[in-house]
Design a protein around this nucleic acid. Structure first.
Length: 423
RNA sequence: GGAGAAAUGGCAGAGUGGUCGAAUGCGGCAGUCUUGAAAACUGUUGAGGGUCACACCUCCGGGGGUUCGAAUCCCUCUUUCUCCGCCA
């Protein structure tokens, strides 16, 4: 959520920045400012009324103590009107706050200056690429066929037990997946991230805190019986660990990693590109989260990018890094780098990580602040990224490492797998 | 699931209708003393809104109510603890 007082101070800058998202927000911004105006005016009136009635109450108290009952009763009558007024003003204030909040909730984060203009994924900017794309022979198979051939993943069984998009991993497929999770967690821990195991269901407040609500209401599985949401990413529970905190600046940065399954309804996104592991309702992901001093957040973002690079180098997968354009940027992000692995057999790029700086957008909702060296309280910057998302990495490995004799296991994973080859 | 107890500032812990944003202790910060440190002493030390700055307003788990006035009384929800039952 954007900060009102910032919008008040830099109205035009906000309108301009949002244009990069293809959004003409001038009317919305005006609405915010006028709602804010109303809120403050109402607040001031209410405060005045309460101040007056506080004065009366104190006087009445004194009168009672000195035994001047009659005078006290006289004053009491005076307060009835004030009570009525303050009750009314309180209601007005509540609606004013609600109006303002709803307007603010609807506004996305403002893009960082380096975000390229653009409307969709075609306008994303490739900023880096690395790794050789293997030349496969003509019998090369896409991963869903390899999965079947070597009995690694059973999609039909998942349909039977739950439904489409809930694959069942088995044998060496399950083992390879577990190996990847362990390897990612170890790698992240070595880089200084503290490992967490967190709940896979979150309450509404948490989902609002990181911005999944109200923006992505339909994307999450909602457990209505207990009013909880299945997490779409570990970002939600992990970041919310710190919701409401006021951290000493000496504790920054806070760095976390965690493995969780992720649940996404993916409503309406069926089609040609969702075969196999490409798009699932349940998948595994290892996430990294950083809580940073605002002055350091972009350094930290670069560091996260380098970290993810090193994982992909370890795995020897060909990949590229995109800087998302304004139109493709997520609601809460100021700057996002997407990592894509080239899937040779499918001849297309698969997104396997998304690394973002949210600046104060989440922190504002989370009320997550730090106390600066001079004793002032400020919002932190939050960042997160996948390191990494499992299914498409698995797809990339299966497809790029296939040989006529079977699938080779990337060297770094052999100790975790306990085998070198799937055949 | 049943019965009972509790929730107060960074922590511990007083406060049962007015002068309480809240005693006291610990911790934190600043100072005195000291070559420096410790100890001792002195001062200071919650958050949000609002204002140019003050004033002022709000907050004692959340929400609602009684009252001129609520940390304190009532209702409700949540959480924690103890006991019982059940159980990976």
């Amino acid at each position: 959520m954007l900060q009102v007082h910032e919008i008040r101070a830099h109205k035009d800058a906000y309108i301009n920045a949002l244009k990069k998202r293809g959004l003409d927000a001038s009317a919305d911004i005006e609405a915010v400012l006028s709602a804010d105006e109303t809120r403050r005016a109402t607040q001031a009136k209410l405060d005045e009324t309460l101040a007056q009635s506080n004065i009366f109450s104190k006087e009445i108290g004194k009168l009672f103590q000195s035994g001047e009952q009659q005078k006290a009763n006289l004053l009491k009558e005076k307060t009835t009107q004030l009570k009525e007024t303050s009750k009314q003003l309180q209601e007005e204030l509540n609606t004013a706050v609600e109006t303002l909040d709803n307007l603010l909730f609807a506004l996305p984060n403002i893009p960082h200056e380096s975000v390229p203009a653009g409307t969709d994924e075609n306008d994303n900017e490739t900023v880096f690429s690395e790794g050789d794309i293997p030349t496969l022979n003509t019998e090369a198979l896409p991963h869903w066929e390899l999965a079947k051939k070597y009995d690694l993943i059973d999609f039909e069984l998942g349909v039977k037990v739950t439904g489409a998009g809930f694959p069942v991993y088995k044998g060496k497929g399950a083992r390879l997946q577990r190996a990847l999770i362990s390897y990612f967690l170890d790698k992240n821990t070595e880089a200084g991230y503290t490992e967490y195991q967190v709940p896979h269901l979150v309450n509404e407040t948490s989902a609002r805190g990181t911005g999944q609500l109200p923006d992505k209401e339909g994307q999450m599985y909602h457990v209505t019986g207990d009013d909880l949401y299945l997490i779409p990413t570990a970002e939600v529970p992990v970041t919310n660990l710190f919701r409401g905190d006021l951290l000493p600046h000496t504790e920054l940065p806070i760095t976390c990693t965690g493995y969780t399954p992720c649940f996404r309804r993916e409503a309406g996104s069926y089609g040609a590109h969702v075969r196999g592991l490409n798009r699932l309702h349940q998948f595994d992901k290892v996430e990294i989260v950083r809580i940073e001093h605002p002055d350091n957040s972009y350094n930290a973002l670069d560091g996260m990018v380098e970290h993810v690079k090193s994982i992909l180098r370890d795995l020897k997968l060909p990949y590229r890094i995109l800087r998302l354009c304004g139109g493709d940027l997520g609601f809460t992000a100021a700057l996002t780098y997407d990592f894509e692995v080239f899937s040779t057999a499918q001849d297309r790029w698969l997104e396997i990580s998304s690394v973002s700086n949210f600046e104060t957008f989440q922190a504002n909702r989370l009320k997550l602040r730090f106390k600066d060296a001079d004793g002032k309280n400020n919002l932190v910057h939050t960042l997160n990224g996948s390191a990494l998302a499992l299914p498409r990495v698995l797809a990339g490995i299966l497809e790029n490492y296939q040989t006529p004799d079977g699938i080779k296991i990337p060297e770094v994973l052999v100790p975790y797998c306990g085998f070198e080859m799937i055949s």
